[in-house]
Design a protein around this nucleic acid. Structure first.
Lengths: 153, 153
DNA sequence: TTAATTGCAAATGTTTTGCATTGGA
DNA sequence: TCCAATGCAAAACATTTGCAATTAA
C-alpha cells in the first residue's frame, strides 16, 4: 500500500491542478519523512535545501491543497502549529497518537480502537460520527526506562 | 458539585495570587457560560460589557492562570483558537466532545468511554497514559432531523 | 508597604492573502 | 495560449511580553 508520486500526480490532474516542481519536491520530502508529523515550517526548511527559491506561502498552499484532496492529514497537537502526514489509504479514520510529555515524541497507533465507543456515541447521543481525533498524553516506553535508571529529569 | 467563586478565591490565595475585580468578572462570565467552550476573545467581549476597562491581555493571563491551577481546562478543536471551560471536579480525564460539522455546536460527553482502550495502549505500546483528548466530528441529532425535512444545505 | 496585577502597545509566531510575474498543460 | 501557480511582502490572526502605573493584601 505505497503512496507514489505518480498516484498523487494523477489525483491532482483529475482535480484540475498541476504538478509543479515545487509540489513535487514537497511531496518527496513528505514521503521521506512519513510518520514524522512535520509542521509547515519543517517542510519548508527541508524543501528549501533542494529548491531554494521556494516561498513559505507555496508550501502552505501545497499542504492545504493536499489536505483538501485527502492525500494528507492535517493535525493539531495543541502546540500552536499544524502538522501534516500522509493519510493512510484504506483507513477511513484518523489514526490515534501517543504524545510523550517527556521527550515530545509522537507515536502512531494504527489500529482503530474506537468502533465500540462510536457505537455508544451514535446510540446514546444520536450523533452521526464521521470522523474522530484521539490523542493520548503520557510517558513513552523509552522515557519510562530512562526514568528508572535516572531518577531525575 | 458546584464551582463557587469563594472556592476559587481560596485556591488563588493559597497559591499566592490575588482576586482582582477583573478576575472576579472573568470567573463570573465563565460560570454563566459553563459548557460553552468560550475562546479568549469570547470571554473578553463578555467581560468588557461589565468591566469596559479590561484589556485582552488580562483575560489571556487570567485564563492561563486558571488553567495552570487546574480550575479551567484549555482545549483546542483545531480551529486555531484555544477554548476554556471549568474542569469537572472529580474527573481525572478530559471529557470527550462531539463537534457538529453542520452547525458547529459542541456537545460534551461526560462518560469515560476509554478505559478499555487505555488498557490496550498501555499493554500493547508500553505507553503510560496520563491523559487523553477525544473529539468526534459528525452531525448532531438536530441537524440530522433538519436534513430530513430540508433536503438541502 | 510592596509584590502582584493591570492596560496598553509593541512584539511574536503562524498562517493567509494581494498582486504582478511565471510556467505547465 | 491562458489560467493555475508562484514568490514576495504585507496583512491577518491569536497570543505573549515589556513596562510604567495601579492595587489587593
Amino acid at each position: 500500500m505505497e503512496i507514489k508520486i505518480n498516484n498523487v500526480k494523477e489525483q491532482l490532474h483529475s482535480a484540475g491542478f498541476k504538478l509543479t516542481p515545487q509540489r513535487e519536491v514537497t511531496l518527496k520530502i513528505l514521503l521521506e519523512n512519513k510518520n514524522s508529523h512535520l509542521s509547515a515550517e519543517d517542510v519548508f526548511l527541508r524543501v528549501k535545501e533542494e529548491y531554494p527559491e521556494i516561498g513559505l506561502a507555496t508550501v502552505y498552499r501545497t499542504l492545504e491543497l493536499l489536505s483538501d484532496l485527502q492525500i494528507l492529514e492535517k493535525m493539531n497537537f495543541g502546540d500552536g502549529v499544524s502538522r501534516y502526514d500522509f493519510r493512510k489509504t484504506g483507513t477511513k479514520h484518523f489514526n490515534h497518537h501517543l504524545i510523550c510529555v517527556k521527550c515530545g515524541k509522537v507515536q502512531e497507533v494504527e489500529d482503530d480502537l474506537l468502533s465500540d465507543v462510536e457505537k455508544i456515541i451514535e446510540h446514546e447521543y444520536g450523533f452521526m460520527v464521521m470522523d474522530h481525533r484521539l490523542t493520548f498524553h503520557g510517558v513513552c516506553r523509552e522515557c519510562q526506562l530512562k526514568e528508572d535508571t535516572n531518577g531525575t529529569d
